[in-house]
Design a protein around this nucleic acid. Structure first.
Lengths: 337, 337
DNA sequence: TTGAAAGCGCTACCAG
DNA sequence: CTGGTAGCGCTTTCAA
């Protein structure tokens, strides 16, 4: 690979001058500039950013760790954050942990070796090992999707407790009173625990009742389908079902339909996420909408701020949600449209 | 940031020795090793990969350029390729061109400056400027989604012509004969041109007829919906509709339903991609399934091969597809289930 | 088994 | 306006 040195020789000037031309610095005679430029084109010189990065102690790299790509939250989030990072003239170094917790910690370490300037971590859990790894990280970390504020970790989270609470109220308002919950896994505080807890509080608050069950499985249509098949047998009185994600809810509705009941009628169903699936299914799915792309943008901005000022102005950002009323759970006073 | 130098001072040995310990080289006295290790832990030393990369002339970076994240093809593809790249001990440097062609060329240049070892490019077009940029690239480039083999660019593509041809046969077989096509934009050879051309050939071949129209729009449900609303007015005789993607098809079916006709009955509809949406919609959508994750894996493997051997064993990989029969277009002899 | 010194390709500082 | 020199933090000879 041809370097600064070669260009210098070819154009008969010093490396310093070539460097000046490349960086478009002022104070270079026009004729020299031209001469050097010619040499650069001639030998197809490409500046070595690695050397520059070493010299300047600055890589312009932002590490992003996700549990999987095939998910609305991550795909849309990445669209949002990449545009902000790009605007800031920085690069995204992407790692896919594939839901493997140990990998996340490993990536934080490797990213620090690569001297990333900051890390955005889409988390599905938060145990002490992860907290330690984040604390160890020289590069500032912004947590997305789980609340790390108790450990002083800047976080961008969804208002999961409120979503759960609101879900309880909606199901109750639609006439349901035997209500169950399908979550994911207990390690996922936000999606599994908080959403359930919100539901529990809503039912407790309004009717002094408790959820019938808290089932758990994967983030997929299939998982929702399989669980619900069994749940319908175990809980024949079920008339309201809150699912931690839209995909799970879609699967659940399929199982309900197959059992001879009508989702949205005998059994009200609610999801979370406002996946495109939810508007296309039959019946269409009532859900909650999060601005995933905005979440990505906000997180990126928060991280850039942290990198710039070594101290963030905000340490926790709670993204609000929007209620999407559709056929699977119309409120009693909202039967129109 | 503490460096090799500090560790050396702290442990009273030379930088060379510390380097040996870090890289776990043989030929270091156990006692020394221990002493150094202690110092490393004490000052929280983290090896500077940037310096290493400069020295070794190897970054372990693979550049990946995508037009957008929120798409089945890219999200699943990224899941596939990231696992291969990770296994190879390399990193993904991600760039999102946001459908902006000029950006793609810019990223190829910047990736070369960052000294990536290779580039995976999810392309939606292939003009001469892009071909030039690829040719200029020192890092090998593998094109995904568009055929660059004419320009000697290693490519992994979908069998779009066959998909179009098969679509024609299926629509015809289901009883349709006034058939239209909704594509994306004419720059997208693969998705827009090839799929249409396949359809055209099928109709020509079997019935000596031509497609009614070739409409164009965006990759979204909304776009399919809006286009179809108008198309139904312009072409009242329409009884078969082939859409370049499932999302477009979903939108089209909505417009058809609203017009009082039944998709899958009066008008047969076909999509491409086997999006989760397609199995959830009503009626469920007949489509073609591509193994997007496998495509990502194959592409990554092809690139790694290219990096390793400077010469690929395969220069073009055509991913096959699977026919998914659902309600929107049952073949005459396939009315069951 | 260890250390000294020479770079990797670039920028930055100081002379000229 | 231009060139020499000294690093950035590491690895890698070559000696000791």
């Amino acid at each position: 690979m041809t370097g600064l040195h070669d260009v210098a020789k070819l154009s008969g000037v010093s490396k310093s001058t070539v460097s000046r031309v490349i960086n478009n610095e002022s104070g270079v005679k026009a004729s020299t500039k031209e001469k050097v430029q010619k040499a650069i084109d001639a030998c197809g010189y490409i500046a070595n950013q690695v050397a520059r990065d070493l010299q300047s102690q600055k890589t312009n790299l932002i590490g992003v760790i996700v549990p999987r790509m095939y998910s609305n939250a991550t795909a849309k989030g990445l669209d949002g954050l990449s545009s902000i990072i790009d605007q800031a003239g920085k690069y995204v170094l992407l790692a896919n942990s594939q839901q493997n917790h140990a990998q996340e910690i490993e990536y934080i370490k490797r990213f620090n070796q690569k001297r990333v300037e900051g890390i955005l971590l889409y988390a599905t859990h938060l145990d002490s090992a992860l907290v330690d790894a984040i604390k160890q990280s020289k590069a500032p970390v912004v947590l997305i999707g789980q609340d790390g504020s108790l450990f002083n970790i800047p976080s961008v989270i969804y208002d999961d407790l409120s979503v759960g609470f609101s879900a309880g109220q909606r199901l109750f308002g639609a006439g349901a009173s035997n209500i169950g919950f399908i979550g994911v896994n207990s390690q996922d505080i936000a999606v599994d625990q908080c959403r359930f807890e919100g539901l529990r509080q809503a039912l407790q608050h309004t009717k002094q009742i408790s959820p019938l069950f808290h089932s758990r499985g994967a983030f997929s249509i299939e998982s929702g389908y399989q669980q619900t098949k069994q749940l319908l047998i175990d809980w024949p009185q079920l008339d309201g079902l809150f699912c931690a994600t839209d995909r799970i809810a879609i699967g659940a509705m399929k199982a309900i339909s197959e059992s001879g009941k009508v989702p949205g009628k005998e059994i009200k169903v609610l999801g979370v996420g406002n996946d495109e699936l939810s508007q296309v299914s039959t019946p269409s799915l009532s859900t909650f909408s999060y601005a995933f792309d905005l979440t990505g943008e906000k997180s990126a901005n928060m991280l850039l701020d942290l990198i710039e000022n070594k101290q963030s102005s905000v340490s926790k950002l709670v993204m609000s949600f929007e209620i999407i009323d559709r056929e699977s759970c119309y409120l009693s006073e909202n039967k129109t449209s």
